[in-house]
Design a protein around this nucleic acid. Structure first.
Lengths: 250, 250
DNA sequence: CGTAGGTTTGAGACTCCTCAAGCATGGTGG
DNA sequence: CCACCATGCTTGAGGAGTCTCAAACCTACG
């Protein structure tokens, strides 16, 4: 659980399938926010808690670099990873409604977050309406994505869920202009399984099958790094899982 | 699938376990919105589509009465109920980010919605900042609730999921000042199962078990109406499902 | 009164979980 | 430097839970 020396946000690199301006949108938005809000910057390391369930809500956080998980806790002690956040994402929306945060936000790597007091943000929005739309867009995206997660968990078998998880991860990186052909999962199998509603053993088996089918590859050393030569192959794998025996030997 | 003659929002009635001002918060918020926004009112009937995935985003909708489902659609044709909405809830947040709605919103009963053009809402917010906080609260609640749904699906066995679903439904009604001792499920078993990530048969079996354990009851005629004498019993049932064999016979 | 849609219940199949063992990796201290 | 340990990963065997398929029932409606 110690910090790796290298932060997880290398200089943006072209994604495998080249959209030359990939990541530009994220970068532009971040620039706007930084200029308008002059946020306090805070460096976090693996395991650092950005905010905690029950803590009084005051700030939103914008992720400039690093990688974070959102963990929901139930009264009876169940623990559930309900979200994963990358550069450009916001943290803390869950706190607006109840005056207290509803879950934990934990860094899974070294990174930098921008602290934005909610009241200061609202004030800035009156001066600069574009900010308000950026905020709403971020919340809207989160709502839409949470629904997609629910659909994945509800409609996909275990193997497809893992494939879809990797696909989404790769696409998130691509949107931010980062390379997707080899990604480093900074989550254990147990965390992935928790997020996807399955056991760590099932995650491991799913990954093994994906590797056997050459949909993904493993780096020479260790199995934390996953090679994704073709993101489309992951989508195809998902479809194959959904069609039990399509036109097998047609 | 025809409309029932009676709309689903009777005059607010005290909830089973009396919080004398239950529903007051919802009512107050709706009053504020109505006064400030003077929204266009629209009556909908069972099956009416409020908005559709792909349709150009322009409006948000506030639910004054009735009962609605949010349906996500995947490219490959999977269909997933990802949300249920009651009086006081908002519809359409998913459209803000992408300029188009990301899912379908469908009425499951006769009801009334208030149409609020997004740009008009923003304009009104500059004049009346309290509106902005109401909007953000609504979005925040939605985010928090979506996460709770994901946790339910990921961590609870089938029976507990159904119990938790009923508990949440009853609490939603209670918050709005409606009676919770006998509720009418306006969803088929298939829809419930889809929402909870299980088959209609499993839902049916779960309900039968809940009835056998006297956690719920069925009305004399038909099995659409569910009696919930004690919402706490549903929570207890969920806990019992989570503790496989706790202190069985000491 | 017949039909259609929704529900219940059963039996068998299949997926995924549980439990267990063995292996790999990386850090620590002798 | 290497033995040692902790942690995480993989794989197998067996079992629990859920799904699939099928039949029968019930209710509403024409």
């Amino acid at each position: 659980m110690l910090n790796t020396a290298t932060p997880s946000t290398p200089a943006p690199v072209l994604p495998a399938i080249g959209n030359a301006i990939a990541g530009q949108h994220t970068a532009d938005t971040l620039k706007l926010l930084c200029e308008q809000l002059k946020p306090q910057r805070r460096v976090v390391h693996t395991g650092d808690v950005v905010y905690q369930a029950g803590e009084r809500f005051a700030n939103l956080y914008i992720l400039n670099s690093g990688f974070f998980k959102i963990v929901n806790l139930s009264i009876d002690g169940r623990e559930q990873v309900v979200g994963l956040k990358f550069r450009g994402d916001w943290l803390g929306f869950d706190g607006i409604a109840g005056t207290r945060y509803a879950c934990d936000a934990v860094a899974m790597d070294t990174g930098e977050i921008w602290v934005v007091p909610y009241v200061a943000l609202l004030e800035a929005c009156t001066r600069h309406p574009a900010l308000l739309h950026v905020l709403h867009t971020a919340m809207s995206r989160e709502i839409a994505h949470d629904r997609d997660s629910l659909m994945s968990v509800c409609t996909l078998p275990a193997d497809a869920r893992v494939a879809d998880f990797l696909r989404h991860w790769a696409e998130s990186l691509a949107e931010r202009g980062m390379r997707t052909d080899e990604i480093t999962l900074r989550m254990t199998r147990a965390e992935i399984g928790n997020y996807l509603g399955m056991t760590l053993e099932s995650v491991s088996r799913a990954l093994s099958r994906l590797a056997r089918d050459n949909v993904i590859g493993f780096a020479t050393k260790g199995r934390r790094d996953v090679q994704i030569p073709d993101v489309g192959a992951l989508s195809a794998f998902v479809q194959r899982c959904l069609a039990p025996a399509p036109a097998m030997l047609q």
